[in-house]
Computed example of a mutant assay.
Amino acid sequence: MKSAAVIIFENFEEIEATAPIDILRRAGISVCVATMNGELETAGRSGIKLVADKLFSEIKNDTFDAVIISGGPGTANVSLNKDLLDFIKKHDLANRIVAAICAAPTVLKNAGALVGKTCACHTSKEAELSEHLEKGKDVVSSKNAITSRGAGTAIQFSLEIVKTLLSEKIAKDIANSICF
């Protein structure tokens, strides 16, 4: 069974976390939601609270087939976290999927996981990611990195991860089942 870690933190963008959790679980992928906070319950930017499966500190030495970083205003608070950057770098060097949405591609950049790759990101981060930016696309798959623009592209982003981890057919079947 394929596995994925979805990383959340205080002020994460709820849709950008819950869409991948839901879509990947529909595909039969084992998803571990891990929080950067010191407690399992974490509040998103709109005050919606998620209860993570584990603390990030409990999984930072584990390996997954995909690592997914949700975006949101709290991204700035974790974008230079050494443990998170090392976690992403380890997965990138092992050619595992490193995925980020909205502001979170900056975390991939800080981890060195965008070298030689292109990305999509929220318009507020385009200047910071200009050397990697692939304009005009909502979701960009570049080698082992999958990135997306924001909350409005979260389902498309999630389906791209499923397609890459499993197959295009499974991604299409899920898209059809949710009327996407």
Rank of each mutant, 00 (worst) to 15 (best):
K2L: 13
A4F: 05
I8C: 02
N11E: 15
E13N: 06
A17V: 08
T18N: 11
P20S: 10
I21Q: 03
A27L: 11
G28E: 14
V31Q: 05
C32D: 15
V33Y: 01
V33P: 03
A34T: 08
M36R: 06
G38A: 13
E39P: 00
L40I: 12
L40H: 10
E41C: 13
A43D: 13
R45F: 10
G47Y: 03
L50K: 00
D53K: 00
I59E: 09
T63S: 15
F64R: 07
D65L: 03
A66D: 09
I68V: 15
I68P: 08
I69R: 02
I69H: 04
S70H: 00
S70M: 06
G72H: 02
P73E: 10
N77V: 10
V78G: 12
S79A: 14
K82H: 14
L84M: 09
L85W: 01
D86I: 03
I88C: 03
K89I: 10
K89C: 12
H91P: 05
A94E: 14
R96M: 13
I97W: 02
I97S: 09
V98D: 03
A99R: 03
A103E: 12
P105Q: 12
V107F: 00
L108K: 08
L108F: 03
K109P: 09
N110M: 07
A111Q: 06
A111H: 00
L114Q: 04
V115D: 15
V115G: 04
G116F: 03
C119P: 04
A120I: 03
S124W: 06
K125V: 12
E126A: 09
E126R: 10
A127N: 15
S130T: 10
E131T: 07
E134P: 00
E134H: 09
E134K: 12
V140D: 03
V140S: 05
S141Q: 13
S142C: 02
K143G: 11
N144S: 12
A145C: 12
R149L: 03
G152Y: 04
G152T: 11
T153V: 11
I155K: 00
L159N: 05
L159P: 06
E160G: 02
N176I: 10
C179A: 14
F180S: 14
